[in-house]
Design a protein around this nucleic acid. Structure first.
Lengths: 226, 226
DNA sequence: TTTTAAACCAATGGTTTCAA
DNA sequence: TTTTAACCCAATGGTTACAA
C-alpha cells in the first residue's frame, strides 16, 4: 500500500467492545430499559438476529426484520458516497465499491452495527431485492408463512438470481454493475459459482454432452444456442 | 484472498532467471550473434535501456526506443484480455485493470521482458501518448534534439498531463477511465498528487487565499469558478 | 441449534533496493 | 543512469473459527 500515512490503523486483538454511544437502529425498536438481560444501561452485546418479515412488517421482540437488513445496505451506500467525497477533496484514490475503508468509516461514524461479514453474508438477498422486488417480496411472504428461519430464506434467494442471470447471458457481474444501487457491491463467490455451474449444465444439455470432456460436434462450451 | 486453489503461485526468492525461449522483442533488433558480450547463445541478462527516440525511429545499439516502450503497454492490454477471457470461461472474478495476475500471466506466456515496476514507472508517459499523441510526439522530438536522457523525458511527461487534467475539471481518474486503452491502468500516485497540488494552487489563486486556512469570503476549496 | 462478528489469511498494490 | 528482483508491510478482499 501507499507509504504509512495513517499509522493508527493497526489491528486490535481480542477484548470486548467498550461501552459507547450507539447510533439509531432504524427498524429496531428493542432497546427497552426494563429488559431483564440489560443490567442498568449497559450496551447491547450484539445485534438482534434477523427474522423473516414481510415487506413493511416491523420485527417484534429481540429481533430485526428484513426491511431493516436492506436499509443497512442503503446506509453503506451513503457511507461510501461520503468516503468518495472526502477522497476526491483530498486528491486520493476514490473507491467505487464498499471496501474495508468504507466499513471502517461506518464504524468510526457510530454505525457499529455495520460490519463486513454480515453485509457480505446477505449481499445476494439484497441483490434479489434490487433486481426483482416483487419476487423478493413474494419469497419473504412464503418463507414467513412456512415459519422458515433466516438461514433458509437466505439460501432460497440464490435460485431466483440464477434464473435472472440465465435470462441475461449468465453475466452476473454485468447484472450487478448495471444496477445503480447494486454496482457498489462485490458479487459473492458462491453466487458466481452457482451461475457458472448452471451455465455449464445448460450448455451441456443444449449440446448433448453426457460427461466431462464428452465429444460433441461443436467442441463443448463456447457456443450458446439462442 | 479466495482459498488457495492455485497452490503453485508462491514467491520464489533469489536466483537468476534460467536460459529459455525469449519472445520477439518488438522494435528491438539487437540480439546479434556476433556481439562480443554475448558469449555463445546465452540469453540477454536484462532489457536494453530505453532512449528517447522520435516517433517511428528504431533505436540503434543496445537500446530500445519509445515506440517499443508503448508497444509493451499494448501487449499488456492483450494479456489482460486473455486473462479476462479465461476468467469468464471459468466463471471467476474478471480483472478490469492490469493486476499482479496479469503480470504473472505475461511472464508465464514468455514475455519475461514485461514487469510491474517498469510498466508502473512509465504509465504516465503512455498516458500522454494516448491522450495527446501530437503533444507526446513533439515532446519526444524536443528531448531527443536536446540530447536529454530517458529520465528527463519521463519527468517532462507530467506537466502536459496536469494541463490536460486542468482542462477537464482536474479529475485524472475520470480521464484515465474514459479512454479505452488507458482505463486498464492505475493512475500513478505521483500524477494524482501533482494534479491535486495544482488544483489546490489554482483554487487558492482564484479565491485570493494567501496561506493555509487563510480566510476568504467563500470558505476555501469547494467552489470552482467557471 | 442458528446467527453474529472478531479474527485471521493469502495475495494485492505499491515501492525500495540494488545489480548491471 | 536504468532496470527489476525483492520487499514492503500496510491494507485488501475474502473466509473461518468462534462466541452468544
Amino acid at each position: 500500500g501507499v507509504k504509512a500515512k495513517h499509522g493508527v490503523q493497526r489491528r486490535i486483538k481480542k477484548g470486548r467492545i467498550e461501552s459507547s454511544s450507539h447510533a439509531a437502529h432504524g427498524g429496531d425498536d428493542n432497546e427497552s430499559e426494563d429488559d431483564p438481560d440489560n443490567g442498568g444501561g449497559a450496551e447491547r452485546q450484539r445485534e438482534h438476529p434477523f427474522i423473516v418479515t414481510e415487506p413493511g412488517e416491523v420485527a417484534r421482540g429481540k429481533k430485526n426484520g428484513l426491511d431493516y437488513l436492506f436499509h443497512l445496505y442503503e446506509q453503506c451506500r451513503e457511507f461510501l458516497v461520503q468516503v468518495q467525497n472526502i477522497a476526491k477533496e483530498k486528491g486520493e484514490k476514490c473507491p467505487t465499491k464498499v471496501t474495508n475503508q468504507v466499513f471502517r468509516f461506518a464504524k468510526k461514524s457510530g454505525a457499529s452495527y455495520i460490519n463486513k461479514p454480515k453485509m457480505r453474508h446477505y449481499v445476494h438477498c439484497y441483490a434479489l431485492h434490487c433486481l426483482d422486488e416483487e419476487g423478493s417480496n413474494a419469497l419473504r411472504r412464503a418463507y414467513k408463512e412456512r415459519g422458515e428461519n433466516v438461514g433458509a430464506w437466505r439460501q432460497a434467494c440464490y435460485k431466483p438470481l440464477v434464473t435472472i442471470a440465465a435470462r441475461q447471458g449468465w453475466d452476473i457481474d454485468a447484472i450487478f454493475n448495471s444496477h445503480p444501487r447494486l454496482s457498489i457491491w462485490y458479487v459473492p463467490t458462491k453466487l458466481r459459482q452457482l451461475c457458472h455451474a448452471e451455465r455449464s449444465a445448460a450448455v451441456a444439455v443444449a449440446t448433448g454432452s453426457t460427461t466431462v470432456g464428452g465429444g460433441n460436434d461443436a467442441g463443448g462450451v463456447g457456443h450458446l444456442l439462442f
